[in-house]
Amino acid sequence: MRALALFLLLAFCLPPLPLAQGAELLILESSRSAVYSEALRGFRSACRSSEETVVLSDFAEVDVQRLVKEERPRVVVAIGDRALAASRKVRELPVVAMLSLNLGRHAPDNIGGISMTVAPREYLNLFQSLGVKRVGLLYDPKKSGQYLKRAQQEARQEGVTLVAEPVHNPRDLQAKLERMKGEIDALWMLPDATVATTVNMEALLLFSMTQSVPVVTFASHYLKNGAAAALDLDPADIGVQAGELASSLLKGESHRVAVLDPRKTHLKSNESVLRKLRLRIP
């Protein structure tokens, strides 16, 4: 009896033991990359929450669903295509993705983030400054179909004609390019994983040289290979955007994860190519 009384006294007087809690964020990085690290720094500056980070390339296989059950995060952050693919099995939590070519606007409601495609209006403004009216665009309907619809609607408003050719298989690109000969004044390269293969990039830039048609692309590293202009993304700012989105989800401000356009770009050009084509960007 005295022992029971002592136990009850201690139980009511001692502070409760802290409960083990998982991190609020589960961050999945596809691999170790300087670009991913830059985006992650931006993310952390905008979203200061407890986190658990896993680099997928460090492991042969990662069961993300099991990780979610064990860590019990509130939001999953996916950086890169491999991380996004691994996160698609997660249904019960919001997933914020960035730096992934495969993030589409037709994703499930719980998957969103920052797209790799710049808003069509920015490209259309660039085409107008170059003085071109007929723009060729190659796209995979499954990956870029929604973006094309936005681009077509805005292009009509700006008086630009889009000559769009669907590419369902990377091997189909050469035949599609043949159809564009003599029909376009510029070629618009999207960050479409079906179109933007190494072999296809060479074909696109060769088409540009032989047909005297400028290529406007999504990454400045293609400038040295012959592209005329690029709208480069800012990985750090993409990270900040993703961090702001994750913060709003943690606050319960939204249950659906939006897919947002990147808000910051850098226009870069190849002056040598522009001079050869007698073009100028004001």
Score class of each variant (00 low, 15 high):
residue 189 M to E: 09
residue 190 L to H: 11
residue 228 A to T: 02
residue 225 N to K: 13
residue 236 A to D: 14
residue 222 Y to P: 00
residue 226 G to M: 04
residue 174 Q to A: 11
residue 195 V to E: 03
residue 185 D to F: 03
residue 215 V to C: 01
residue 243 G to S: 00
residue 206 L to G: 01
residue 249 L to H: 09
residue 248 S to L: 09
residue 193 A to W: 10
residue 208 S to M: 06
residue 236 A to T: 09
residue 239 G to K: 01
residue 207 F to Q: 05
residue 247 S to T: 03
residue 239 G to Q: 04
residue 235 P to I: 02
residue 223 L to N: 10
residue 179 R to P: 13
residue 198 T to R: 15
residue 237 D to R: 08
residue 244 E to D: 14
residue 184 I to M: 10
residue 225 N to H: 12
residue 216 V to C: 05
residue 216 V to F: 10
residue 181 K to I: 15
residue 210 T to L: 13
residue 172 D to T: 03
residue 233 L to S: 00
residue 178 E to L: 03
residue 244 E to H: 14
residue 227 A to E: 07
residue 194 T to I: 06
residue 174 Q to F: 09
residue 195 V to I: 07
residue 195 V to P: 01
residue 190 L to C: 07
residue 239 G to L: 02
residue 205 L to P: 02
residue 214 P to F: 10
residue 211 Q to L: 15
residue 203 A to S: 12
residue 236 A to E: 15
residue 241 Q to E: 15
residue 213 V to T: 11
residue 211 Q to T: 15
residue 225 N to W: 08
residue 216 V to W: 06
residue 178 E to Y: 00
residue 191 P to R: 04
residue 246 A to W: 11
residue 172 D to I: 03
residue 193 A to E: 07
residue 175 A to H: 08
residue 196 A to F: 08
residue 207 F to D: 05
residue 217 T to Q: 02
residue 227 A to I: 11
residue 219 A to F: 05
residue 181 K to E: 15
residue 176 K to V: 02
residue 230 A to L: 03
residue 222 Y to D: 00
residue 193 A to F: 08
residue 215 V to D: 01
residue 179 R to D: 15
residue 197 T to N: 03
residue 191 P to E: 07
residue 223 L to H: 04
residue 197 T to H: 07
